[in-house]
């Protein structure tokens, strides 16, 4: 099947690599920043389309890697054009928009895959597998960590609350989704953040406490708080019969200690690496296989919506200073 990517930023590039290895035919890219589009096109030997409508018309699958505030319009347009859609997370900025996108794709008979990449990271999958095999007993306390530096330069839309939803919706969504995947339905959300108190703070950091219907609890930690270049993640899942600990500090299989060639040059957006198959590649391969062979997605658009629900509940908690009870007490 023919695939086109819209957007040539960090995620456009990560997905392009995945499509190239997926067996699909990546034919082109279109981006508002034409220089970035040309560069991506050159790297993958594909065409840079000036007109994204033309790209949309030429493909079977459109991969939307644009800022979050543009997701809805583009997904609706793709659905109208009867194209399958891969869309970067978060699905949208509001639950209403997310539902409208899901409904539009359903009605048009096209697939909608929300790229929630953390579910494709091997250590996160391995932990989920151990839990499902009963190795940990009943879930007790989940701790998840994801702290990076604040996105830099061209990627500044990330830090604009109206465009990205802010750090909680953009970054912590991953772990909110993962916690849901592990423990199921959330009943209570309580959150505190730096920008919740001081909107113009130079970085952001938040702690979100979740209470699940099954009695488990979770502490989700996220931030754009580290010095440039640093990205740390971690998992601690404790159950009645066992425990899983993992921290990104500990699992590098190769550690280069080289003098920097260009100390000023740091990735504009930090993304974690896993040292195995690039999880973005795993993710795109899966999406393509599911679309091509009409198989279910490992993470559904509804999962994308539910993760957004948790992120928005956390923001509501920041605003009110109260515990947010989902679905009544």
């Amino acid at each position: 099947m023919k695939v086109g990517i819209i957007g040539a930023g960090t995620m456009g590039n990560a997905h392009a690599k995945g499509w190239q290895q997926s067996g699909a035919e990546l034919i082109g890219v279109s981006a508002k920043n034409q220089a970035s589009a040309k560069q991506l096109a050159q790297t993958y030997q594909i065409k840079a389309f000036d007109d994204y409508q033309e790209l949309l018309d030429s493909v079977d699958i459109i991969d939307i890697c644009v800022p979050t505030d543009l997701h809805k319009a583009m997904v609706l347009e793709a659905a109208r054009a009867k194209k399958h859609v891969v869309c970067e997370k978060p699905i949208a900025l509001s639950l209403e928009d997310a539902q409208e996108m899901i409904d539009a794709c359903d009605k048009a008979g096209v697939r909608l895959f929300i790229a929630m990449v953390v579910r494709f990271f091997p250590q996160y999958r391995a932990a989920k597998t151990a839990l499902d095999a009963g190795q940990l007993g009943d879930l007790g306390v989940i701790r998840l960590k994801r702290i990076s530096h604040q996105p830099i330069g061209d990627e500044a839309w990330f830090t604009t609350e109206e465009r990205s939803g802010g750090m909680i919706v953009d970054l912590m969504l991953h772990d909110l989704d993962y916690a849901r995947w592990l423990a199921g339905k959330v009943k209570r959300v309580y959150a505190k953040s730096v920008r919740g108190k001081k909107a113009d703070a130079p970085g952001d950091y938040a702690l979100i406490s979740l209470g699940f219907e099954n009695g488990a609890m979770a502490l989700i930690e996220g931030g754009w708080a580290y010095p440039p270049g640093l990205f740390r993640t971690g998992i601690d899942i404790a159950g009645s019969a066992g425990l899983i600990e993992w921290h990104s500090d500990d699992s590098q299989t190769i550690k280069p200690f080289l003098k920097p060639k260009d100390p000023g040059k740091v990735a504009r957006v930090g993304i974690p690496s896993s040292g195995t198959e690039d999880p973005y590649v795993t993710e795109i391969k899966h999406a393509y296989d599911a679309i091509k062979n009409n198989k279910p997605f490992l993470v559904t658009a509804e999962d994308g919506l539910e993760a957004l629900r948790l992120a928005l509940a956390a923001k509501e908690s920041l605003k009110t200073g109260q515990v947010i009870h989902l679905g009544g007490k």
């Binding site: 009943d138 879930l139 007790g140 306390v141 209570r188 309580y190 406490s209 979740l210 209470g211 009695g215 488990a216 609890m217 404790a238 159950g239 009645s240 200073g321 515990v323």
Partner: peptide
Amino acid sequence: DLYAEVANPFTP
């Protein structure tokens, strides 16, 4: 102020 989730999942 404070909020707490408290339970006994580990040693029923």
